[in-house]
């Protein structure tokens, strides 16, 4: 299977949120979005956008799940916002029961998901964040599973 990929450049946190919102609009139950990128590269702000795209009310504030490990929000679909940042090993990930969220009725967005790619479902869409300067980010979306390719085809039409 061939990997598809779409690259974006955002110039502010607001633009990163907006890109997430566009993606959120295309998502359906069972989708898994894997986020990767260094501290401060915009993963949580991107997820705020995905939440908006999923129809989560604006007054519901999506915050970093680093400490709680998972936050849950109700929208058109339930959003499970996971974070592997402070987990030491795959064993910890499994012990915390986080893999179960991949099989729940909802959409999963997981930060630091590239730490153990082997645990992620194949149908996932990968989103990688690179800091270009203080405000600007390069955001690459990729995937090879038919579902990921389907989402990427829709995302290609989104203005870059």
């Amino acid at each position: 299977m061939k990997e598809e990929c779409v690259i974006y450049r955002t110039r502010s946190a607001g633009e990163t949120v907006d890109l997430g919102r566009q993606l959120g609009g295309f998502l359906k139950r069972g989708d898994v979005i894997s986020l990767a990128g260094e501290l401060g590269s915009g993963k949580t702000w991107f997820t705020k956008g995905v939440g908006l795209g999923l129809g989560i009310a604006r007054n519901i504030i999506i915050t970093s799940p680093t400490f709680s490990l998972v936050n849950e929000y109700e929208g058109r679909h339930t959003l499970f916002h996971l974070d592997a940042y402070r987990l030491e090993s795959l064993t910890d990930f499994l012990a915390a029961g986080l893999d179960e969220y991949f099989y729940q009725e909802g959409v999963v967005v997981m930060e630091w998901a590239d730490r153990w790619p082997e645990i992620l479902p194949e149908r996932r869409l990968n989103v990688e964040f690179v800091i270009k300067d203080e405000h600007s980010r390069e955001i690459t979306m990729s995937g090879y599973d038919p579902r990921a390719v389907e989402i990427l085809k829709k995302m290609e039409k989104v203005k870059r």
Binding site: L69, Y85, R86, L87, E88, T91, D92, A95, A96, G97
Partner: peptide, 15 residues
């Protein structure tokens, strides 16, 4: 002085 700079949550239910 945890190498990953976080709490070690071997935690969860099991701990």
């Amino acid at each position: 002085h945890h190498p990953h700079g976080g709490v070690v949550p071997e935690l969860a239910s099991r701990e």
